[in-house]
Design a protein around this nucleic acid. Sequence first.
DNA 1: CGGGCCTCCTTACGCTGTACGGGTCGCTCC
DNA 2: GGAGCGACCCGTACAGCGTAAGGAGGCCCG
Lengths: 230, 230
Amino acid sequence: MAPRTDVAARSALTRRRVLQAAVDLADREGLPALTMRRLAQDLDVEAMSLYHHVANKEAVLDGVVEVVVGEIVGAVAGVGPDAAVDWRGALRARILTARRVLLRHPWAPAVIETRTAMNAEVIGYFDGLLGILRAGGFSYDLAHHAMHALGSRALGFTRELFAPADPETGGEEAMAMLEQLADVYPHLAGMLADTAHRDDGVLGWCDDQAEFEFALDLLLDGLDRRLARG
Amino acid sequence: MAPRTDVAARSALTRRRVLQAAVDLADREGLPALTMRRLAQDLDVEAMSLYHHVANKEAVLDGVVEVVVGEIVGAVAGVGPDAAVDWRGALRARILTARRVLLRHPWAPAVIETRTAMNAEVIGYFDGLLGILRAGGFSYDLAHHAMHALGSRALGFTRELFAPADPETGGEEAMAMLEQLADVYPHLAGMLADTAHRDDGVLGWCDDQAEFEFALDLLLDGLDRRLARG
DNA sequence: CGGGCCTCCTTACGCTGTACGGGTCGCTCC
DNA sequence: GGAGCGACCCGTACAGCGTAAGGAGGCCCG
């Protein structure tokens, strides 16, 4: 077999490149496609070669979170009002920006929730959020509670329970089932009936962005009141 | 090899028994231990035999969620005040009861979040919650928003981002790192310093139950205000 | 009593992450 | 300048995973 033609051209293989390739792969083909062999293939390399730049697959997952959160940190820099004047607006803007980034990486929330240790990017992001709250007059204690209350929302996502199966069929059959079982599930059936004649109809009824903002504002309201109360 | 000694004695193998064994296994040895082979072994059977009672592993996971939520539904029956008098107390009691059940199955939240379709138990549970809100005077629309805002909290859990590695070492090193990087992460370092001299010290500083209730009450407050506002 | 069905077992395949050992390059130092 | 060395990469192999395919035994119904 031909000897390696040009070492330098490809030997740019580095931790950074591995992680970026992992993110790209997940973006293109979904999280299940992110295997060590497939990742290596994308980098034109054998699977075992990856282990010279990352300890194991866990480290890869840690790394992709680092990359994605890094993207967020880059995106939120300088957006939104001055925290000292309007902490609430500043926080809101930052979180919605984070959400916009995560919408480009739909698989990322699932990975983030499996992580156990923070990395520098994440710590930096949270430090920034904390800074906003402090500038707004929060005590450390209340700020701490606030971060817990926001939870994953602070990073711009909420994992929906029992998410949409597939956009078309899923809703229809659930709807039909509920109609038949209207006496067993009266309130759900009622809600469905109520919502049905309001907007377009089937389960386009859940506007993720609207629900996210509703819940976020609910929390911000609550925090504002706790803050005012002292 | 000896012919089967007593078919009847073990042939109680049934979907229910399989799912219950799966729950028990996960309780005892954690989610990673829940493999088809290991599960079969616990039931004194070969792996492939399971496939006569469940379609595949996904169906097993669907099933264990069904079992756990069934446990919740059983536990919440009849607890809390009358919803027509005190929707908020009723909702709160129900959710905290659900949480108590889930604390017995620490692996369950992770499984629930991977599910894509609801089962009858889950639908029934949410119908009950909806009933409480309706009795409290919520419009279908506001109730719908409320369920989304509660999210997984409605089932009694919140997945903490970057959960505790292990109780002892994890906190210490994070603490030391933060102290060293006090100029890079001023707010986190400040919060840590503030909290440190308040209670016992290291990262027993996050009381999960207290944080859960804080966030829950924040949301209930907000919903109450939205309700009053009409 | 005979056929079919329901259960269960056996075997095997493709996939995963990764341990281990060897080969090849470029740099450094005598 | 050549010998050593460390960084990088490859090939092979293994255990474990979910599960497809086919065969064997006991049960019920005709």
